[in-house]
Amino acid sequence: MNKPLDYIFPNPPEGLDPRQLDPARVPQHVAVIMDGNGRWAKKRALNRLRGHKAGIEAVRETIRCASDVGVRYLTIYSFSTENWKRPEDEVVGLMDLFAKTMLAEVDGLHEEHVRVRTIGDVSALPEATRAAFDEAWEKTRGNTGMTLAVAVNYGSRQEILHAVEGCVRRALLEEAEGRDPLAAVSEEAFARGLYTTGMPDPDLVIRTSGEMRISNFLLWQIAYSEFYCTDVLWPDFDRYEFLRALLDYQGRDRRFGAVK
């Protein structure tokens, strides 16, 4: 972090002190399950797509704040493999929103040295949406700041099956060449087949809107992640809500199964 806390959090609400944040203990990887766009819109008698559009500002704010405080990896759960079951007009609108938002934001992300990548099966996305994410990756792939991983058409069960398939293929190759096929099976080899290869496991998972579900998100990777759930609906999630999550995380005693 190279920006002072009072610059990142200039107008904290009463009772929230940014100076309590220890820059040396900021989580390396934060993953966010963004939930509540539809309920936010319903409370205002708007259609669900208006809620998704309102959530873009929360995404923008979270990216900026995470980068400023020193988070190295931020993963946002944008569209799951199950979300295809939603009404067609909502899905079409979301895909268009993803493409337009990515193209509108990529230059600013590049200026902030953020690297943008996707996790999930992007081959199933509409061409314009896929092209926007590809363009963002090509433009920012050499950046050395925070990595933003957009989980789109992502499902952890699907991802696990993909990784298992990779292990099986390697095991068959080992066997065909006269070596022990089990040598191809290990946690490290399995992890290399995940969409998140090259990224550390999340330290902190944030879920908004009061829900208490994992929703098929990073099942392998969050084995020892800390969870922070808030009743705040995603469009209302701002840098101060992010600060609350970070402070809560820094109050945890992470033992990873050991006794201290």
Rank of each mutant, 00 (worst) to 15 (best):
R60W: 11
I214F: 04
Q28R: 13
K53F: 13
V92Q: 09
I222K: 07
I56L: 10
I160R: 15
L233P: 08
F217H: 04
L16S: 13
L194D: 07
V232H: 11
A184P: 04
F98L: 02
G155S: 09
V32N: 04
D121C: 13
K260I: 06
P12C: 10
G210W: 10
E127S: 15
K53E: 15
I76T: 14
T129A: 04
C167G: 09
A58C: 13
P4R: 07
R255Y: 06
N83Y: 12
I206K: 00
W40D: 05
G93D: 07
A58S: 12
F98V: 14
Q250K: 07
R48I: 11
V71A: 11
F242L: 05
E241V: 00
T62A: 10
L74G: 08
M1F: 01
I63G: 01
D35P: 05
R19E: 10
E138P: 14
Y154T: 00
V106L: 01
R141Y: 04
G193K: 15
G155F: 02
E187G: 08
G198I: 09
L219P: 10
D248F: 07
L21A: 09
K100V: 08
R60P: 03
M102V: 08
A151Y: 00
L218Q: 05
P235D: 15
V32T: 01
A163R: 15
D231P: 09
L21Q: 09
A132V: 10
S209I: 00
W137K: 09
L233V: 11
E187Y: 12
F133M: 02
L173S: 14
V259W: 13
A54R: 12
L109T: 01
G142L: 15
F227P: 13
G155I: 06
A132N: 08
T118W: 15
N216H: 11
G36R: 00
L194F: 07
E82R: 13
M199P: 00
S156E: 03
V91Q: 03
T118H: 14
V259T: 15
G38E: 02
R141F: 03
L161C: 14
Y249D: 06
F242I: 07
F133K: 09
A245G: 06
G36P: 11
G155W: 03
I63K: 00
G70Q: 05
V92D: 10
M95Q: 03
V69Y: 05
L243Y: 11
L148N: 02
E82I: 10
E105F: 01
G120Y: 02
T129W: 05
V26L: 10
R44I: 06
F217N: 00
D22G: 12
A66P: 03
F256L: 12
I76M: 15
